[in-house]
Amino acid sequence: MSSFDFAPMPNAEGFFGSYGGQIIPPELKAIMDDIDRAYREIKDTEAYRSELLELYKYYVGRPSPLYYAKRLTEHCGGAKIFLKREDLNHTGAHKINHCLGEALLAKYMGKTKVLAETGAGQHGVALATACSLVGIECEIHMGQVDIEKEHPNVTKMKILGCKVVPVTRGTATLKDAVDSAFEEYLKDPVNFFYAIGSVVGPHPFPMMVRDFQSIIGEEARAQFLEQTGELPNYITACVGGGSNAMGLFTAFLNDESVNIVGVEPAGKGLDTQEHSATLTLGAPSELHGMKCYVLQTEDGEPMPVHSIASGLDYPGVGPQHSYLKDIERVDYTSITDQECLDAFMTLSRKEGIIPALESSHAVAYAMKLAPTLPADQTILVNLSGRGDKDADYVADKLGL
């Protein structure tokens, strides 16, 4: 038996090893169990699957291309760098994959409103889009800092008919937006549906979001074999909550020849307090209804975190990532804000592809790794989103 043959994840209680679960009040547990039951009832039905796959193909534009970045490879030297182009999806990122699934599930369950948090705004735009498509009310909570930084996405959400709720408490970023949205959800969990934006939160969300996102890895694995005749030597993706990474990694977990690397935000440096490197420097704890690695203050509270990428500044991480770190199937490393900016500009100017700042963390890691490997090795990067939302911010920061 391969050392990478996994038992079904999660188990019936929603645990990946010792991580995950439902650390929530009993009345909310009943609601979560309802969602789990509804998801299991419909996920494999012909009607649901055919509707979702049809939307992926004709609405999202799947399969997204696998692209050999020849000029970036020549610039870096060493291994060949390939990009899985999730940035070309409708709405500009991988988030649309699970948002369509969750919006259809909410409609199936007869919910009247879909609630969510957003950081960079990609989840918010994708969910507003999906809710508009299926005809259900949408409300997105977003930190005031992120609203100012990601203004184009805020405008898109409003155009799509979504109510955007500014969150000014705490650091006014992603963790605070999660808290705010969850409080609103608790006002009427029977009629509201909380569409969590990553592989985090209480069971069944880490499982559901992973399942919806796993199409990324399934496509990429088949495309890579078709284009090169073999599997990649390395695959990598940025990790905040971890949905785009889990989407890519899942299809490759049993392939022993494939090295898997998750890239966290080192922010202004791991020796500072201004980073979001949860798996690198955090410890197992509880956050937002799950057990996972968490960055904490000395008194055990979630630490204020920082990343140049608004979609990555979260003090926790998906429970499956926490498990994969412990069993050493996935390596987790980190990239600084400056390295991220350098990768953003390099990919833009070498390939004509402007990446999201989140995705630029994975690009930066690939750029560091490639020169250390021989030319017959390959690296597959999940380019999880495009950088339209970040262009003004980066131009301002670099004085362009």
Rank of each mutant, 00 (worst) to 15 (best):
F6H: 08
A7W: 00
P8A: 12
P8C: 02
N11M: 06
F15Y: 15
F16W: 13
I23Y: 13
P25I: 07
P25W: 09
A30P: 02
A30M: 13
A30N: 14
D33Q: 15
Y48H: 11
L55H: 01
Y58N: 14
S64P: 07
Y67S: 12
Y68C: 05
A69E: 01
L72R: 02
C76L: 03
A79H: 01
L88M: 15
G92H: 09
A93D: 05
H94S: 09
K95L: 11
H98T: 09
H98A: 04
G101P: 09
E102Q: 15
L104E: 00
L105E: 01
K107W: 00
M109N: 09
G110V: 05
K111A: 02
K111F: 00
K113N: 06
V114Q: 09
Q122K: 07
A130M: 02
E139G: 10
H151E: 13
P152C: 06
K163V: 12
V164M: 00
V165W: 02
P166G: 10
G170I: 04
G170E: 06
E184F: 08
F193V: 01
G197R: 06
G197M: 06
S198N: 11
V199D: 13
P202D: 07
S214M: 05
A220T: 08
L225P: 00
E226M: 14
E226L: 15
Q227I: 02
T228Y: 11
T228P: 00
L231P: 07
V239A: 07
A245E: 01
M246N: 11
L248F: 03
L248M: 12
L248C: 06
L248P: 05
F249H: 04
A251H: 06
D255M: 10
S257C: 08
V258F: 10
N259H: 15
G262H: 05
V263S: 09
A283C: 00
P284S: 04
G289K: 08
L295E: 05
M303F: 03
M303N: 01
S307T: 11
I308K: 06
S310E: 12
Q320C: 14
S322G: 05
Y323K: 08
L324W: 11
D326P: 02
D326C: 03
D331E: 15
S334N: 09
Q338L: 13
F344S: 07
M345S: 13
L347S: 03
E351C: 00
A356G: 15
E358A: 11
V363D: 12
A366E: 09
L369S: 10
P371M: 11
P371T: 12
A375S: 15
V381A: 06
G387V: 02
V394F: 07
A395S: 14
